[in-house]
Design a protein around this nucleic acid. Structure first.
Lengths: 253, 253
DNA sequence: AGAGATTTTGCGGGATCCCGCAGGTCCGGA
DNA sequence: TCCGGACCTGCGGGATCCCGCAAAATCTCT
């Protein structure tokens, strides 16, 4: 049986070559190794060749890995995907765990892991069909689900909203909340991020909390560019749908 | 003469191996190739071994490449450094061109460049002593110096300030400007970033301009995490110096 | 030196943000 | 059943932000 197929989605040619070599060594029963150098073509190749096993990088120019994974899993939810990436940002971890379908085998491995770990992960996921999550990632997942330090989905949601630069009122519309509720959530967020009115000890307001919260989130790796980019696309869709719905006060006022 | 030395500062082991190979092939007269896997130890090795030629990645965990380059150049300004990185973000380009000493030979090459380009750049910089800037980077540099699309240093400065989450008043103090001037600069910034009161066509204020400006800057790659991190450190230093200077209204009010 | 562009500063007001206080709903445990 | 905790909501006010108008200062040419 050499009908096994693996698709590599990775934009760095050096890493691509490295991966191909690792696959050929760890999975000798693999008959075909395909390569794609960006998310877009990766989606297409996965579809056309009906590849059951994929290893990909998050963080690419064209289609952010998470995007690619989402569409691939939407079309064929039983695809096994191993994410192989540099960063353990909570933003990525959240992005991935949000889209993984129930029962799918997947893995999350840091590029800093040893070659042995990589080969082991390849076999575990693609042959045994079991999930492999890097230990460091586990830590991030844990922390994210911890009520005291981590962030609720609703808190994360509003964090994204202010990161996008939305007004309180706009957020209220979008999330179907009252204005006060939005401000309420914001207060909780500020508190959890530690951007209270007394950053150091007791000096007078140096920070605009709204903007400061975003910065702190970025520094803490809760947010990164691709998460914002993703949210921005969602926002644009919502805006379009809404321009039609209530175009009344366009020229007026 | 085989007294040539080259230091590789790069946290990815795969890329490190690739670089070593490229160096040995392009610079056969090179007698010693050193490796460091993060910025901190890179600085140290450069100092201890007095390495004249360095190739490094921006974007590392420990010490952001730009940091490393700054200290290295401060100690020995005639060091030749080739930056080899994934991104052409304006944030990086600005960061580098701010610290390169007059007359130093340096290069800026994207990792997506071919292996031949890399070898050519190695010889040009380390043997010929001339600068090699990737064409794509050139484009970014150009744009940055163009008055119409690009951003002035003062504009970029205030962009960083609001990205950090400072209030208008705090910025005014820090930059020694009146409150109104700060707001003025902000208006110019908003205009240049295209975050005017009419994002699409004419709907009513959906965005908090201050926060929106930061997001747009991130999406346009004017800002990235390491730029913010750098600015944050500067800010902290300023804050400390200032807590001593005017601690009067600590407990009061 | 003088004309023109750019930048800085002040004033003022309307919109927004930040948040304390208080009342309402919903839900799981005693 | 009642209670305590969580979340949402309205009201109100002080601080901040956004910005038009206009005068002064500064810079840049010729």
């Amino acid at each position: 049986m050499t009908d096994m197929k693996v698709l590599i989605i990775e934009d760095d040619p050096v890493h691509r070559a490295f991966l191909r070599e690792a696959i050929e060594s760890a999975l000798p029963e693999c008959g075909l190794v395909l390569e794609a150098e960006d998310g877009r073509t990766g989606e297409r190749m996965a579809r056309e060749h009906e590849v059951p096993d994929i290893i990909m990088d998050l963080q690419m120019q064209q289609g952010t890995g998470v995007d690619a994974a989402r569409t691939i899993w939407r079309e064929r939810p039983d695809t096994s995907i191993l994410f192989w990436t540099n960063y353990a940002d909570e933003a990525y971890v959240r992005g991935v765990s949000r889209i993984v379908p129930a029962g799918a085998a997947y893995g999350y491995l840091l590029k800093s892991a040893s070659e042995d770990r990589l080969r082991l992960a390849l076999r575990s996921i693609f042959v045994e069909g079991q999930c492999v999550i890097d230990k460091e990632i586990r830590g991030v997942q844990q922390k994210a689900h911890d009520r005291s330090v981590g962030f609720t989905d609703s808190e994360y949601e509003i964090l994204l909203d202010i990161a996008l630069g939305l007004t309180d009122r706009a957020i209220a519309n979008r999330r179907r909340l009252s204005l006060r509720s939005v401000q309420n959530r914001l207060q909780h967020l500020y508190e959890k991020l530690g951007v209270g009115p007394a950053s150091h000890a007791g000096e007078e307001a140096v920070f605009n909390l709204r903007a400061r919260a975003v910065t702190v989130a970025v520094l803490r790796k809760l947010l990164n560019r691709s998460a914002v980019e993703q949210a921005e696309q969602d926002l644009q869709r919502w805006l379009e749908r809404h321009d039609e719905a209530a175009p009344a006060r366009r020229a007026g006022r």
